[in-house]
Design a protein around this nucleic acid. Sequence first.
DNA 1: CTGAAAGCGCTTACAG
DNA 2: CTGAAAGCGCTTACAG
Lengths: 336, 336
Amino acid sequence: MKPTIRDVARLAKVSITTVSRVMNNPELVAPDKRESVLTAIEKLKYQPNALARGLIHKRTQTLGVLIPDISNVFMAELIRGMEDAARENLFNLIICNTDIDKERMISYLQVLNEKQVDGIVFVSEPVYPDYYEVFKRYDIPLVLAATHSLEYEIPSVMINNEQAGYDAVEYLIRQGHEKIGIISGSSIEPISSIPRTQGFMRGLRSYGLKADFEKCVEYGGYLFQDGYEAMSRLIKKFPDLTAVFAVADEMALGAISYLQENGIRVPDEISVMGFDNTRLATMTWPKLTTVAQPIYEMGYRALNKLIDLIEYGTVDELRTYLPHEIIERESVRRRV
Amino acid sequence: MKPTIRDVARLAKVSITTVSRVMNNPELVAPDKRESVLTAIEKLKYQPNALARGLIHKRTQTLGVLIPDISNVFMAELIRGMEDAARENLFNLIICNTDIDKERMISYLQVLNEKQVDGIVFVSEPVYPDYYEVFKRYDIPLVLAATHSLEYEIPSVMINNEQAGYDAVEYLIRQGHEKIGIISGSSIEPISSIPRTQGFMRGLRSYGLKADFEKCVEYGGYLFQDGYEAMSRLIKKFPDLTAVFAVADEMALGAISYLQENGIRVPDEISVMGFDNTRLATMTWPKLTTVAQPIYEMGYRALNKLIDLIEYGTVDELRTYLPHEIIERESVRRRV
DNA sequence: CTGAAAGCGCTTACAG
DNA sequence: CTGAAAGCGCTTACAG
């Protein structure tokens, strides 16, 4: 059995009130009693029960994270940023993998609520109206990471995906490419996939290039295999392309793999650009030129924002857009 | 404010005892009262406070995971296995990144104890005597994943690393290689690095090959860059090697990258074999031949073992060794 | 400076 | 079948 405050009080021959005080307001306790309580605590290896404390303070120092899939490299890095920020502020994280399953997400939300988490960060998925209803119902402080909501007033941290898509094509165009394809994520995913694709099309147009949607875009599901397959489809309908922009590093690697397997050299014959700058980007050959998101920082900042919301009930910037950046490596043929 | 059991009782015009009963033993309550309580619950969207419950039952349905670094691909997959097992058994996970830092680990352990977690899984690190002391002190059910302890009686789930090292060289030898190097992890890490290296040396010897430790082993730190650098050192002191076994996929990719950058073709000139079979192994070119660990399953099984320990106070197998397997892909030249 | 008492939100004997 | 009371392990007015 774990020792309780009662055991400490008994051993130190004081009331439990006094024990509680030496833990929370030691200056209110006479030095001699304080000493004997301290030694009793030490002797019993007493540690207060956080449940009892939480019940009184209505604070658990625990946060919930609703995330599609932790085994994804991007998500793992994001969580690491959150974890570090949590730790610095004496919070712990309960991680919940939703697998983008609505029921699963709702059931997790329920247990997080029952466990009295002090706040929640919702990662990467769009805030659909029905999701918003549940969030509202629980009124737990909420922050979005790697996603945002224009309809609702929910604090968020992400990058500007439309601009990132634009910057990606612009970079390819400046390297001399004119026939450029894109491997996008889902055609109905409004947070990253659609904006990046739109930015891509805008870039094409603004440089006076033909922006034939049907011809130059293919969809995948963010994973290696998806990129591989999308590449095979893309090159069939757009055989003379010289560059491809994939909206996730993993898909870019899939595309490269397809090309290499078919004897097409990267970047000599076809250039490939990725997105995210996960650790994967440096682990292949050629190393991936990619649009870097500050993934770790996004997690870190989102969590700090959540803590602001919890502590002060407000946040200094509702929607934060972190800068992205193009990292030049070897998968795009450079203009000579 | 969240509604409490009191609010429900008031609305349903019954005692809180009755409300509690319809939630826990509905058959003890008369149908009409049960109905009115249920509608009150529905109306107020009442959900019981898990802290109060936990305080009484001495059960939180929350487990702690002490893990070096979640952003590592291997760890992320392992956690996913644990998460799924936890979910099936109605547990949640608090993930703690220790960064292999002893103080950090001890402080996490303290908060896990204060938060009254029902159990802990300790991942991948050796159980040093001082760690054991802290574990013992808290007497929280404990299970080891991707590590084990021969000194202490702690349930664990992992693979047989020594045998895996043996099987790896044996495979390489059977493909016709005789001059084989190894890129190991740390020279003092007794759980995976040393046994894999020992198995490797045993394999060399048992096939009558020269097992010159000084010449054929180099160390890295499990990451891409470590593999890259270790490869450069290894090839300098062992220039005529034809195959390399790296004890982690990520290091194998680093090694491949070094070779390719230096114009050495893989596997035509030098074969490279990895370890783990993380998702990385299929994302490169050539795809990685590797020793597969059942990572997800290790996490899943470890968590189930922990639950057994919690529920029954015992476990049907103290130390579980899951089978490993060699996955043939393209980074090792096959015997014709 | 110190302790008895009330209370956080529940559950569970106990009595009726 | 139902409810008042005690109690889980704490904290915090309140009185002295």
